[in-house]
Design a protein around this nucleic acid. Structure first.
Lengths: 123, 123
DNA sequence: TGAACATATGAATGGTTGTTCATGTGTTCA
DNA sequence: TGAACACATGAACAACCATTCATATGTTCA
């Protein structure tokens, strides 16, 4: 029996400096915000919208047609993306064009795809 | 009135080559997988778990204590992270140690934090 | 101005999800 | 072996969420 195995029973839980670690972690508030950001990427519809906007700005009807979904559903999701400051709008006549409002989104997506490809290789 | 404003009425929706764009987008399946990945980051508890694992491997009880949550709740979340191949396990006696199983997670988080900081600056 | 169009939004709904409680599985050691 | 410990897991419940339907807002143009 080595020493590490015993620490749990002594309520130290194998961690030598839990309080110290907590201090170096991003604040709970920041991690909550981070979760909120990734929540925007956690839905297929929103991901497809953002991905479509990588290439060019698009109006709502274009996005709806591209994703083969109702205008209302798209509009609701765009509102969330707008609130998260991931997209911005520009009005042109009756249409409203949406475009990306963040330089990190593409990079984040790229690394997400790398993860997927890496894990697929292991199957 | 310029030409662009009219395209919506003609059901072209301002996009010159919608079909072409669809082909260059990642497949719907891939984007679904991508959403599933980001879904793992879309919860505060899971984010905090992963963040705690950046520094060192931890057993379940340590994580529960660190996050001030019940053991069962942590265990359920760890199961999801395991299924997503984001963490791996190592048994040591009665304890089971969890550690990160992906090199992209930290990079993705870093860019997420950059996004947050950038947007905070604009308020 | 008013009809047609593009988009936004509130309410309702079915599906999903995170936590808790109770219990099961696997390990250690006296 | 069996008690104590560490963790996993199934069921239940409440909270949340994405879509749809109906309708409202804002724009263009005849």
């Amino acid at each position: 029996m080595n020493q590490a195995e015993n620490l749990c029973s002594e309520h130290e839980h194998h961690a030598t400096d839990i309080d110290g670690k907590r201090m170096t972690m991003p604040s709970t508030d920041q991690l909550f915000e981070l979760a909120e950001l990734f929540k925007m990427f956690s839905d297929s519809t929103r991901i497809r919208i953002l991905c479509a906007l990588f290439r060019q700005e698009l109006c709502v009807a274009s996005i709806a047609e591209l994703l083969d979904m109702g205008q209302s559903a798209i509009s609701h999701q765009l509102r969330l993306l707008r609130t998260a400051q991931l997209v911005k709008t520009r009005r042109a006549g009756k249409s409203i064009f949406y475009s990306l409002d963040d330089t990190h989104v593409e990079l984040i997506f790229e690394m997400g795809l790398e993860h997927i490809l890496e894990k697929e290789g292991h199957i």
